[in-house]
Design a binder for these strands. Structure first.
Lengths: 245, 245
DNA sequence: CGCCCGGTTGACTATGGTCAATACGTGTGG
DNA sequence: CCACACGTATTGACCATAGTCAACCGGGCG
């Protein structure tokens, strides 16, 4: 369950400027550096089960993880998709209310909970950044509520793809014009769990969008978008770029 | 749009121990007191439209407000139900991405945004409390994602009622046993907007729950629950009280 | 009195779910 | 090298849940 990796120096960390540590000065960074450690998970591995004690909080350094809730009878809903720089865990609470799973191979930058909480009290920059990130996540969750509550299956698929495309372009500093490639390391079933659909419906709607020329597939988990605006038009959202996330 | 009300002293404020100011000592409270002002809205009034500049952030003192998103074609999704002590607005952002509406008559305790943000930098207790509240809201939003994505219409109605019952019992320090009365100042349409249903389906499912003796109505907006566990059983959630919110 | 708003109920429909058969790709073992 | 199995994805036929459209109810207010 996650062996220790070679240490990366914070200064050259790929998520240095987007993660909880984004606002830290070099002094604060040193304090974080002192208590951090890396952990790796293989695709499919569980990082934490709902109800488990979590002895650490962490940032996703690379890979994709998911937060999911499961009902007694097995229905599951994904409630968060954690991409690099996203934060896992909640200061002040030892148990995770969600299953956290590595969707692809994942590297985490972990901090034991207690030292991290103490450090948060001392260094307002960490708390500030965490508040900002949490507010962003809240916005994302609310955008997702609209998708789950009011969008059609086709709109849901299109929305998922645009959201991932936007996040990938942000991280990689790429433009959202011309041909876009989206790497989506989710199975059809995971997409269904995220979108509140069945995997059959996901498959059908992807086929339909493909038939209509809105998207193209390179393999099963790689999407090619020739015309991003055409995809956005399928989401049901305002076309005029006035987006939240 | 909201006349000034008589001032309440923070010390005797009904939400003193649950709102953003909960962790403040008397010194910090004085600083807040200096920049606060009250504002009233009538049921149905808009507090703020999506995209508007918000010159203030605020705590709900009394009444119920809603956050909603609307799509171009008119489909709307409620993404938050703000009860007393809940916080409106986001420090560091001047525009609200959501419509904020007074569902019942509402009193807000407002702070102009700039002074509040400065105060947040000086008084970590406010920032800490806001982080806690935001994390709670994020949990609530994620619980709602499960409801929207995976629950049946009947389960959705039951879930809404249990959530409101839990919040009302928390605020009023009442037990969740014996006969419970729920005041839900929402129209059928607002419930539908919250639950991702149509108002007809809401009406039908409420009728069905009533016919089955799970709930009783005192008028249209007042529910009486004889057996809370029976209602919880209709939500599809774990029965064993291991709840998140 | 009559209108309007919110709510209920009914008949019909459509979207997406269920169940099942089939395809595809990759790794394993004969 | 091929055969097979397993996990993942696609597609089809049928069905159920919730949406649509419409009629009607009842209370409050001008």
């Amino acid at each position: 369950m996650g062996q220790i990796a070679l240490d990366i120096h914070c200064e050259e960390c790929p998520i240095r400027h987007r993660a909880v540590c984004a606002k830290c000065d070099s002094d604060e960074l040193e304090q974080l550096e002192a208590i951090k450690y890396y952990r790796n998970y293989e695709a499919g591995q569980s990082i934490c089960w709902a109800g488990d004690d979590m002895e650490f909080v962490a940032s996703v350094v690379s890979g994709v993880a998911s937060l999911t809730q499961t009902m007694e009878d097995g229905r599951t809903q994904m409630v968060g998709l954690l991409l690099p720089s996203d934060f896992i865990g909640r200061p002040g609470r030892q148990q995770s209310p969600y299953d956290v799973t590595a969707v692809s191979d994942v590297t985490l930058c972990c901090f034991r909970r207690k030292p991290f909480e103490q450090l948060m009290h001392r260094t307002p920059h960490v708390a500030e950044r965490l508040l900002d990130m949490t507010l962003d996540e809240l916005d994302a969750a609310r955008e997702w509520m609209l998708i789950l509550g009011r969008k059609t299956a086709r709109e849901k698929i299109a929305s998922l793809l645009t959201i991932i495309a936007r996040r990938e372009s942000q991280i990689g500093m790429l433009p959202l014009t011309g041909q876009i490639n989206i790497n989506l390391p989710l199975t059809r079933e995971s997409m269904a769990d995220y979108l509140g659909l069945t995997l059959e419906t996901v498959s059908r709607q992807i086929s339909a969008l493909k038939k209509d020329g809105v998207i193209h597939l390179d393999g099963k988990r790689r999407f090619r978008i020739e015309d991003f605006q055409a995809l956005v038009a399928e989401t049901g959202d305002d076309t005029d770029g006035g987006m939240i996330a």
